[in-house]
Nucleic acid binder design. Structure first.
Lengths: 145, 145
DNA sequence: ATCAACTCGTTGCACATGCAACTAGTGCAC
DNA sequence: GTGCACTAGTTGCATGTGCAACGAGTTGAT
């Protein structure tokens, strides 16, 4: 019951709020993206990360980090998107272990259609979260950072 | 390309950071709790939520909300914990559809052992996140709320 | 040149999750 | 009381995920 107990409890509460907000947003995004474009949140995240490379490509490992996924999950995720023709695997010459992934035109096109859905859903989920007393301050903090 | 575009991009970036921080913390907690007590993060969350009711019980639905889980997942999670003797299902008299769950002494005991692990892991993951430039401000904001 | 230690990506497997369909129970209209 | 819409919790099923083991390629020491 030392003096550090307050800090511990504050951290725990912060984590619970963070998790709650994350869950809320993700649920809304998932529903909207899935319903409108048959994309999961992770799939959208990957396409978005790729597009942010502006015509460039990313290695599987980078993609895994960007999506907070294990490498095995990334393998199958990329396979899934490749089978839908949204991206392609490109063998890299200078490191023959490495595999680059690139958006196809179809992938970029789907992303362009999905982005408004994503952005709108994000906004509604945030306003929704703002109504909840325990999440209000965290949402506000998110705007500022 | 209206004036609202900035706000959209800020929200998107905030969401990416939130997701990144969430993923980081959850990964650390998962590893530590699993390694030391064979508890997943969700399982810990449920036990913790129950304990916070201070001797009382919670309905499945409340538990589902607290853990940000579907009701089916909650059913199986409770079954899992019940089989390990950490909590019990209690039929409720006044609403015979409802089922309460309570911590057993063993459950409370395990939670007491796991809490220090959890709190320590949470602290280390936060200091870890503070080192990353893009997460630093969010972590700081978390302390304040 | 060779070997060991490492990284990168893939696969087998076990498992937790969500959705939809179901049963059981409640509450309200009439 | 009868019927109807609703809620609570459980189950079958499909699917996405992590871990561990693996093959292929790289790097550096000797």
């Amino acid at each position: 019951m030392g003096i550090g107990n307050d800090a511990v409890e504050i951290r725990a509460q912060g984590w619970r709020r963070l998790a709650a907000l994350h869950g809320l947003i993700e649920a809304v995004l998932e529903k909207e993206l899935q319903g409108a474009h048959r994309l999961s949140v992770v799939e959208y995240t990957v396409l978005d990360a790729l597009s942010r490379q502006d015509g460039w490509h990313m290695r599987m490992r980078q993609l895994a980090r960007a999506a907070a996924l294990s490498s095995s999950a990334t393998t199958r995720l990329v396979t899934r998107l490749e089978e839908r023709g949204l991206l392609t695997r490109v063998l890299c010459a200078d490191d023959r272990r490495g595999i680059y992934t690139e958006l196809t035109p179809a992938g970029r096109q789907l992303l362009d259609k999905a982005r408004p859905t994503h952005d709108r859903a994000l906004e509604t989920s945030l306003t929704q979260a703002e109504q909840l007393p325990e999440l209000e301050s965290l949402v506000a903090a998110l705007h500022l950072t």
